[in-house]
Simulated assay, not measured.
Amino acid sequence: MARTKEFDPETALQAALELFWERGYEATSMSDLVDHLGIGRASLYATFGNKHELYLKALERYLETRDPSPVVMLSQPGPALPAVRGLVELYTEDSIRDQRRRGCAIVNAAGEMLPGDEKVARFVDANWTALETALTSALIRAQAQGELSRDRDPRALARFLLVFLQGLRLVAKGPPDPARLRDAAAQALTILN
């Protein structure tokens, strides 16, 4: 007869995400995960696979639990440019409020694991492509609704904003300086005028 799990996999996955997010992949050992999650090594492997597989699942969990989702924010009906501005402001204020200076788990993964880890590279690229696509779509809608000049290139603007937002998350991991982040965001938003 098969044994039933003595732990909640969703709770364990969230705990693994928190540990990876706090320490990074390399600095988190399987022993750390076993201790932090309170799960036996065999159960951990049976449920999540090896450390790398668990890391990828934790990154997926990070994306699934982001609230609000940037893609959902940008795809709401109505004026599009306020949604784009709101996203920049959200990233800025979230970065300022991040007292533990963990940054973005996806940016952290890119900084720690790339180049060299194809699975993480695909994951990061898919995430950034989804955000770029959502930004591009919102900016195309903004043009169609007369909110953004027709002479602007929505894709180029979206790419700039994507790079800016990821850089913002990285800078926020350093010594706290809310003015630096807010001033940079204000300048970034001028490209939408």
Rank of each mutant, 00 (worst) to 15 (best):
A46R: 15
F48V: 08
E22K: 14
Q143H: 08
E22H: 14
G103P: 04
T47I: 05
A105H: 06
L181R: 13
E10W: 08
G40K: 11
L157S: 06
R100Q: 14
T133M: 09
Q187H: 10
V124H: 01
W21I: 08
N50P: 04
A156D: 09
R169E: 12
L131C: 05
N193R: 14
A2K: 13
D153R: 12
R41K: 15
N193K: 12
V171P: 03
L131T: 04
Y55C: 02
E64W: 11
A109N: 03
T28E: 03
A15M: 11
R155E: 08
R66G: 06
L170Q: 15
E18I: 07
L81T: 07
G174L: 14
S43D: 14
L19V: 13
D125S: 14
D117I: 10
L135T: 03
M30R: 14
D94F: 03
T190H: 10
R152M: 04
K51V: 09
C104V: 02
A126R: 15
S43P: 09
R150D: 11
A105T: 06
A15T: 15
L44R: 02
P178L: 07
S75N: 15
R159K: 10
M1W: 09
E6P: 07
P9G: 07
I96D: 05
R169P: 05
R97T: 07
L161Y: 03
S29A: 11
R101G: 04
P68A: 12
L165H: 00
A42K: 13
P82M: 10
R23P: 05
Q14W: 13
T136G: 02
E64R: 15
P175D: 12
R101A: 10
D151R: 12
L44Q: 03
L44Y: 02
D177S: 14
T47N: 13
I96H: 08
L17G: 02
V84C: 04
L157Y: 07
L44S: 05
G78T: 13
F160H: 12
S149C: 11
Q166S: 15
T11K: 15
K57F: 01
S75W: 00
L54F: 03
R23W: 06
S29I: 10
Y45A: 09
T47G: 10
E26C: 09
A109E: 00
A12K: 02
K57N: 11
A126C: 09
Y62K: 00
L63Y: 05
Q166D: 12
G146F: 05
G38N: 12
R180I: 07
R85A: 06
R97Q: 14
F123M: 05
A138I: 08
T133E: 11
R41T: 12
E147Y: 01
L63D: 09
K51S: 08
V71Q: 11
M73V: 14
P154G: 03
W21P: 10
L13V: 12
K57R: 15
L37K: 03
G111S: 10
A27V: 07
H36S: 12
W128L: 11
V124M: 01
F123W: 03
L54W: 00
L181I: 07
Y62D: 10
L135F: 04
A156H: 13
E118V: 14
F123Y: 11
M73A: 11
K119L: 13
D183M: 09
S29R: 11
G174A: 15
K173C: 13
A12I: 10
G111Y: 04
L189D: 02
Y25A: 08
A83T: 04
R150Q: 12
V163R: 14
